[in-house]
Structures are given as structure tokens and as C-alpha cells.
Design a protein around this nucleic acid. Structure first.
Lengths: 334, 334
DNA sequence: ATGAAAGCGCTAACAA
DNA sequence: TTGTTAGCGCTTTCAT
């Protein structure tokens, strides 16, 4: 059996309240007893039972994180950031990978509810009404990271996807490209799909290149889909010399396709990605991409839910973080 | 306030024990009351409090997972497998990323202890005596995944690293290569470093190629280190025509270096990786590699700790899973 | 400064 | 079949 506070009390020959005090307000107990208690704790390897504490505090000091796809390196970054923040703030973290499955996500919320997590961070996915209802029904505070909601007024941390996409496309235009395509996220199951598309369109319009607006194919989060989308894009518009991809993984899929078709990147076609995953410097050629502050996004999300939990509200509801274009090898002047 | 069992009882006009019964042994309560209770549960969105339950059952139905580096895709796979198994077995999962930091790992064990996790899965790292002592001190059962311990008798699930490495090198030899190098893990901070090295040596010896034994450089888990190691390897032994890399990430680093040196893969040099990460089919060229059943490893690890938890022991202590050589584009006949 | 005792939400033994 | 009650390990009044 694991030792309880009673065992410690017995060994130190004090009452259990005294033991409790050395753990929660050491200064209120006299030195001699305190050290006896600490010795006992040490030798018994005593750890207070979080269940008992939770029952009293009505807090678990645990946060839940819901992510759509753990095999996407993007989330590895937000997990790291969030976990570091959790350490700083004294929380444990419960990470759940939904694989973009609605049922699964809903059942994770139940688990969070039962485990009494103090707050939830919901990452990168569309906040469907069912999710919202359930979360609100459970009375668990939550924030969004790399996501937002137009319907509901939920705190969130993300970058400005529209501007980021605009920057990427503008960069391509300034390189002299006139025939520009895009591999985007489907609008109906992605949160950043629409704004990135808008950024693409705005840049095109601003530079009188609106004839490109139709040169777009959508893919479903993964490399293979982007490969296929690139195939469709280049079959339909062989004149394209530059492609804006809304994810590094899409950029890799596109380049892979181009390679198989013997089209050289960046010699014949320039490609810019999005996210700046660790992978983007490992790929050949190294990816020109829009860098998101992935780690910081995760970190801030944890701070934000903590703010919400402790103060009851949040100073800035919709927080935008900075993105940055990083030029590497997959793009070149036309 | 979140509703308690008392609120449900009041609304359904029964005693709290009856409510408890409909949750734990529904058949023992009469239909009429049961449905009243279920209605109440529904409308109140009641979830039993895991703290209270934990206090009684002395179980948290939560497992802890310790991984060294969440930005390594390898672990994404074991997490997925483990989480799926956890769903099946009724556990929640607490994932902690140690970043290979001893202090951090130790403090995560404390957190697990406090949170009363039922068991711990320790992934892919060396089980240092401090860890072992601490784990045993906490009386938390644990198993190793993609790891093992020679000093302690701990249940584990892994592949046969020696044989896998042997297979990879043998494949290169049978392709006609005579000058073969290796990029390995440092032996002092990796668990699979030594056996994979042994496999390399055995294959060499078996085919009379022992002059290659010295052609080895070590790297530290990451792409950049492998790039540097490849630089050293090829500077020292420019005659090399094939390289066995003990990780896909190393293979990518090596190929990247070769590319920068204008050495063609697989035209001039063949490279084989290890792990078969999702990435390995995204890279150019696609990686020939030793596939580990990563997902299954995670899945089995969860089943194993569950077995240990429920039966008190484990049927097969050291479990080996199958690896498989997958030939793709990064290797070619000499 | 310290101890006794109530109570957090639940389960299980016991009574009815 | 159902209700009453003790008690899981802890914190926190309230006395002392």
C-alpha cells in the first residue's frame, strides 16, 4: 500500500493536521516537528493523493489538449510549448488525439469531464456546434489554439492566416511569377482554409493577376492528397510556375509530384509552404515557407486557459501572433 | 457547481445508492427508478467525479507515457497505438515529453505518482538506475517500449535490433556493396545503439567485409547531427558506396549531406534507414528502410501494462515484434 | 502551535 | 429492491 498522511503522522509522531501543514504552510509549524515530518515524508516516499486533494479543492491541476492528428509535426510543436507552460504553471497535461473523428472527440470530452480537468485547449480544428454544446454543458472552460470561432465568443490564439497567405503569394509575385497556383485546405473541414484562400485572392487582385484565382486545388491535410492535388493542378494548368501551399506537407507532396514529372524545383517551378515544420529544413530542396510560432502558440494557449481559470476572463480575446516568411531553396525568381 | 450524485438522487427522488447502482449494476434496480435516474443524469449532464471514485477504487484508470522527444515522428506512432489500446481498455493517457532531460523525467514520475496513475510506459530510452529506483520507490508498475534493461527484470516490447540491423546491412552487401559505412546512435545515451552496431558488425564479418567495421560515425538522434556525422564519414572514407543509418532521420541527414556534396543517391551511394516513419515515403528519394511496427509497439505496450496491472504479472517478459525491410528508392545495386 | 473532527463525492457493506 | 452509513485521504475550521 502507498503510504498515506496517517502513516507519515504516525512515523513523525504528530497529528495528520500537522503533516498537512508542513505541506501547505510550513512556516506555521515549529521547526522541530517540521523536520521530523519532512524526514518521514522522505523515508516513506510519501506523495499526497491527488484524488483526496481534488475532492477538496475541486481542481485537478490538469489541462486537456485535443489535437486532430498527432502524426502531423505541427502538433508536436504546440504540445512542446504547451507542456513547458504547464510545467511553469503547475499543471499536468492530458493529450488526446482525435484523428479528426467526431465521436472520438466527444468521448474525450466525456473523459475530461469525468477526470475533472480544469480546462481544455482545443487545437486547429473547426469548433462544431456539437463540440461547443458539449463543452459548455460540461462547464469546462476552454480556449482555441490555431483556430477561432465566428459563431461563438471563445478566447483563441492564432496567427493571421489571411495576411500570412497574402505575404506568401505576394512574395511569389514579386519574384516575377505570373502563373500562380495554390494547394489549399478544403473549406468545409478546416479552419484556416478560407482565410488563406482569401489572402491568396487578395494578393492576386492587388497585383492584377486575378486570372489565377481559379488555379486552385484542395487537399485533405496529408502529403498523399497534396500529391494528387498537384497532379490535378498541373494537368489542368501546365503553365503554372509557382505554387502556394497552405502546409509544408502539401509543399512536400507538390514537390514530390513535380519531381516524378521531372519538373525541377525551384528551377522551373517555385513552391512555398506554410508552418515551418522542423522537416522543412530536412527536405530537399529546403522549403521556403511561412513560419508560424508553433511552440509559442502552444505556450500561450496554456497561459490563456490559465488566465481564464484564475481570473475568470481573458484580457485579449482573440490573440494574434506573428508569422514570418522564411526564404530557403524551393523558390526562385522567374 | 457541477452536479453531484446527490443532485441526481434528489431529482430522481431516490437515494444516492440507487443512483450509484444504476451506474455500476443497473440490473439490480427496478426499471421505473432506473429510467428516472437515467433521465436525471441526462438532464443534469452528470458525470461521476473521478476523484471520489479514485479514492475508493484506488485506481485512476490512467496510464502515464514517458517519451524522450515528441518532435520525433517515431513517437507519434507509438502514441497513436497506445492511445487506441487505452480506449479499448478504458484508460486515459497522460503523455509526458522529457526532451531527454533527467530532472524533467524524474519530476514527471512525481507527477504520475501524485496523480496516482495506475501504470507507466517508458519509451525508447535508457532506464538509468535513478529512474528505476524512483519508479520502484513509487510502487508504480511499468513496462518498457522500444527499450529493455539488462540490469533489471522489466517487461518490455521491442523489435530485435541486432537482427534488424543485420538484415539491413546484409541487404546492402547482397546488392554488391563492398565499402559500407554506418551512422549509429551513441552507445552511452541510447538503448538501441549497441545492438544495431552489433548487427552491422555481424553482417560484415559473415561476408568477409570486416575492413568496414571502423567506418562508423555516431550521431545524436537528430537530422543535423547525422548531417555532420555523414560529413565526417565521407571525408574520412570517400570510398564508401553504401551507408546503413540507424534512423530514418539519419538517412535523411545523410542524403541531404550527399546532395550538398553533389553525390547522387542512389546513383553513387545507397542509403538505408530505420523505422519507416511516415516521412520516409515523403522524402526524395523515398527511403529504403527497416520498418518497425511502431503503432503495434505502442498498442502492445498498453496491453502489457494492463496485463501486469490486472494479473499481477506478464506472460512473456521480453516481447519481440517483427521488423521488415522495405525497399524503396534510396538503394541500388552496386 | 497543535489536534480533533467535519466533510469533499462516491462505493459498498449492512439493514430493512 | 432500496436506503443508511462508514470511510477512502486529504484540508480546514474550531478548539485548545
Amino acid at each position: 500500500m502507498k503510504p498515506t498522511i496517517r502513516d507519515v503522522a504516525k512515523m513523525a509522531e504528530v497529528s495528520i493536521s500537522t503533516v498537512s501543514r508542513v505541506m501547505n504552510a510550513p512556516e506555521t509549524v515549529i521547526e522541530s516537528k517540521r523536520s521530523r515530518v519532512m524526514d518521514a515524508i522522505q523515508t516513506l516516499q510519501y506523495q499526497p493523493n491527488a484524488f483526496a486533494r481534488g475532492l477538496i479543492y475541486k481542481k485537478s491541476f490538469t489541462l486537456g489538449l485535443l489535437i486532430p492528428d498527432i502524426e502531423n509535426l505541427y502538433f508536436a510543436g504546440v504540445i512542446r510549448g504547451m507542456q513547458d507552460a504547464c510545467i511553469k504553471l503547475g499543471y499536468s497535461l492530458m493529450i488526446c488525439n482525435t484523428d479528426r473523428d467526431k465521436e472520438r472527440l466527444l468521448s474525450y470530452i466525456d473523459a475530461f469531464h469525468e477526470k475533472q480537468v480544469d480546462g481544455i485547449v482545443f487545437a486547429s480544428d473547426v469548433l462544431y456546434p456539437e463540440y461547443y454544446e458539449k463543452l459548455v454543458g460540461c462547464r469546462i472552460p476552454f480556449v482555441l489554439v490555431s483556430s477561432h470561432s465566428d459563431e461563438y465568443d471563445i478566447p483563441c490564439v492564432e496567427i493571421d492566416d489571411e495576411v500570412a497567405a497574402y505575404d506568401a503569394v505576394k512574395f511569389l509575385i514579386e519574384l516575377g511569377h505570373k502563373q500562380i497556383g495554390m494547394i489549399g485546405f478544403n473549406h468545409d473541414n478546416s479552419i484556416s482554409g478560407p482565410p488563406r484562400y482569401d489572402g491568396f485572392v487578395r494578393a492576386l487582385n492587388e497585383f492584377g493577376l486575378e486570372h489565377n484565382v481559379e488555379k486552385i486545388k484542395f487537399a485533405n491535410h496529408r502529403f498523399e492528397h497534396a500529391y494528387q492535388a498537384a497532379h490535378e493542378l498541373f494537368t489542368e494548368y501546365p503553365e503554372i510556375t509557382a505554387v502556394f501551399c497552405v502546409a509544408d506537407e502539401f509543399a512536400m507532396g507538390t514537390i514530390s509530384y513535380l519531381k516524378d514529372r521531372n519538373i525541377h524545383v525551384p528551377g522551373q517551378v517555385s513552391v512555398v509552404g506554410f508552418d515551418n515544420l522542423r522537416m522543412s529544413t530536412m527536405f530537399i530542396p529546403k522549403l521556403t515557407t511561412i513560419a508560424q510560432p508553433i511552440y509559442d502558440l502552444g505556450y500561450r494557449a496554456a497561459e490563456k486557459i490559465h488566465e481564464l481559470l484564475t481570473t475568470g476572463s481573458v484580457e485579449v480575446k482573440r490573440e494574434k501572433m506573428e508569422h514570418k516568411l522564411i526564404v530557403r531553396e524551393s523558390s526562385r525568381e522567374k
